[in-house]
């Protein structure tokens, strides 16, 4: 657990983790977590985004939702960097279990192993999951 840090101008900066463990489209969680991250990016907070378990499917390339008339928000992940969200982590084991390789993904996210995921989660001040 890290202590929240206070900047010179008195602003508190906390380590936030947004946890994505669910696949897209079957439920709305992936989309609404993404919407939350886009807002969170406007705050001077230390934003981290983790993709593990079925959450790694959110980043799959070539999602084609036109026929279902559902929103394809997978392209929005590419915009995260422009919003200043750069600490994006994918769990290696979750990808391997699901037959995904980095080439299958819409963004070049950092891959960490399960042990590193444990350390990442354990170092957070605020964990928002859905």
């Amino acid at each position: 657990m890290s202590d929240a840090t206070e900047t010179a101008d008195g602003l508190v900066t906390k380590r936030f983790l947004y946890v994505n463990r669910k696949a897209p489209h079957g439920t709305v969680y992936a989309l609404e977590v993404l919407e939350m991250i886009l807002v969170a990016a406007m705050y001077e907070q230390d934003v981290h985004v983790a993709f593990l378990d079925d959450g790694v499917f959110q980043l799959r390339k070539n999602q084609a939702t036109e026929e279902l008339e559902m929103k394809d928000f997978s392209k929005t992940y590419r915009a995260l960097e422009d919003y200043g969200v750069e600490k994006i982590f994918l769990e290696k084991e979750s990808m391997e279990e699901r037959g995904l390789t980095p080439d299958d993904l819409v963004i070049p996210a950092a891959t960490i192993d399960r042990k590193q995921m444990t350390e990442l989660m354990d170092s957070m001040d605020v964990v928002l999951s859905a």
Partner: peptide, 20 residues
């Protein structure tokens, strides 16, 4: 209100607990 209200309360609170 906007999602910013959630972020604000997470910053101000000592603990954030999610029920889902």
């Amino acid at each position: 209100a906007g999602i910013g209200q959630l972020i604000d309360s997470c910053i101000d609170a000592g603990r954030t607990v999610v029920f889902g």
